[in-house]
């Protein structure tokens, strides 16, 4: 599963790169517009270790932000799963808040909290949280009638049991949602770093953009893609392990 994710990413990246190079040579563009393969390899050799460190820094923030979002999404999702007034309010609030573009809110966050770790974390969590919440609410609000019916009839149904049943029955869906939210957390962190942080791969991309250096940006994209593929693959494996442990 992990290997499949990696080679799928490599295929997509190489196809994208091949298209770029094809455009470069067909339209006869200079290395300033699209770098040649030689320049790209040279840049990769020169900055890959620095960028690997930057991506790792970004990934750490993204993981913490994602964990925070998952926990919060489950707490709010459990509260919002019922078709009560509170449940409906939580769903409406999640839909509305999700509509605000984070890039518009990010500068306010940076002014209030500075450009350190907390701002990056908060923005990553915000980008990741709302889609996650909507999925979790959707999954936990769906009754598993054939299983729950027995516990309801015997009067043994408690909210903890209800959540467990619904989570277990939807574990593949939840795993997919959590693995998918990793992309959002990573994207959120990169956006935060791009806007105003002073560390991470988003910050490095901003510098490369100022220098009009597309080769650095392409190397950064490669590092982000490969790291994200490994992380998502690891999450999927973790999901399977949890399921098999739960089944036993």
């Amino acid at each position: 599963m992990l290997l499949r994710r990696i080679y799928q990413f490599l295929m997509i990246y190489l196809i994208g790169l091949a298209i770029l190079l094809m455009i470069k040579y067909v339209v006869n563009l200079s290395d300033y517009v699209i770098p040649s393969l030689g320049i790209l390899l040279n840049t990769f050799g020169g900055i890959s270790s620095t960028y690997a460190h930057d991506v790792f820094s970004t990934l750490c923030v993204a993981i913490i932000g994602q964990i925070f979002s998952i926990m919060l999404a489950f707490v709010v999702g459990i509260l919002g799963r019922k078709t009560t007034w509170l449940g409906s309010l939580i769903k409406v609030a999640a839909y509305n808040i999700q509509a605000y573009p984070i890039v518009a809110l990010a500068p306010i966050i940076f002014i209030l909290l500075g450009d350190g770790f907390v701002s990056r974390l908060l923005i990553a969590a915000m980008i990741c949280y709302f889609p996650l919440l909507l999925s979790v609410v959707g999954i936990l609000a769906e009754p598993i009638t054939e299983v729950e019916h027995f516990y309801q009839q015997t009067g043994r149904m408690r909210w903890q049991l209800e959540v467990k049943i619904r989570s277990f029955e939807n574990l593949p869906k939840l795993t997919t949602v959590i693995a998918g939210s990793a992309t959002l957390a990573m994207a959120g962190t990169i956006v935060a770093e791009f806007i105003a942080a002073n560390a991470g791969i988003g910050y490095s991309i901003r510098i490369a953009l100022y220098q009009s250096d597309l080769s650095k940006i392409l190397v950064a994209l490669f590092m982000i893609g490969i790291t994200l593929s490994i992380y998502q693959g690891a999450l999927e494996i973790a999901g399977r392990l949890v399921k098999s442990a739960w089944e036993q």
């Binding site: 200079s30 300033y32 517009v33 320049i39």
Partner: peptide, 12 residues
């Protein structure tokens, strides 16, 4: 600096 950077990369 943009112009010089571009010339160094073969931009016409």
């Amino acid at each position: 600096d943009q112009v010089i950077q571009a010339i160094s990369k073969g931009s016409p």
